[in-house]
Amino acid sequence: MITTEPVITVKNMVKKFGNFVANDNLNFEVYKGEIFGFIGANGAGKTTAIRILCGLSTPTSGEMKVGGFDIYRQTEKIKQNIGYMSQKFSLYEDLTINENIRFYGGIYGMKIADRKVRTEKMLERLELTEYRNRKIGDLPLGWKQKLAFSIAILHNPKIVFLDEPTGGVDPITRRQFWNLIYEAVEQGITVFVTTHYMDEAEYCDRVSIMAEGRIVALDTPERLKKQYSANNMDEVFLKIAR
């Protein structure tokens, strides 16, 4: 259910590292219930922006709200309402699936009964129930990624931030991963995702294309393709980049 009610508002976001401008005056809104994609080459400033929105980095200037909360003053409230999956794999390899789930449920302050119900559902969905006592380190990468995503939304956040979640996995697993993202959206979770795979851009409700720290285009994939008279997002991207 896509609305036009903003859950993330970004006005004039600027982030500088010394003389280098990583985010140059970004302005956008993310609507409740949509899949919002941040597309761009490596170094375009996608990760910097996502880290600021998750409270991992302070912006140099600008006004930002996440889930209705101010990014400077209500960081704790924001953290309670978001899920985050980073580029780097984020589960503990020496812990079992179950222990990782308990840990993340614990630090997000989930009620035990609630956690148990959701855990069962999640493991069943991922067909991992019988492997629950395996150490994460023994699992194939594709499973780990799907599990990491499912754990990132275990506490039912309003928004989940995914920073290049499908890096290094095969196309089939990527497709399965996106199915999980759609299911999360059906649950009412807003998805903010960065990627440099152009086929994934097609899966987003709206995409924002970044280059050199700026947003150079922002619309639905359909309209972007029409505007640049391209067959797919790959062509759109190449045309913009040129």
């Binding site: 880290r51 998750c54 409270g55 991992l56 704790e76 953290k79 309670q80 978001i82 985050y84 999956m85 980073s86 580029q87 780097k88 794999f89 984020s90 589960l91 503990y92 390899e93 993340y104 630090i107 997000y108 302050g109 931030f161």
Partner: peptide, 14 residues
């Protein structure tokens, strides 16, 4: 090093 510190910092843990 493993990147889990980011996840912890993005969580409500202080």
């Amino acid at each position: 090093e493993t990147g889990t510190m980011e996840i912890l910092l993005a969580s409500p843990l202080k």
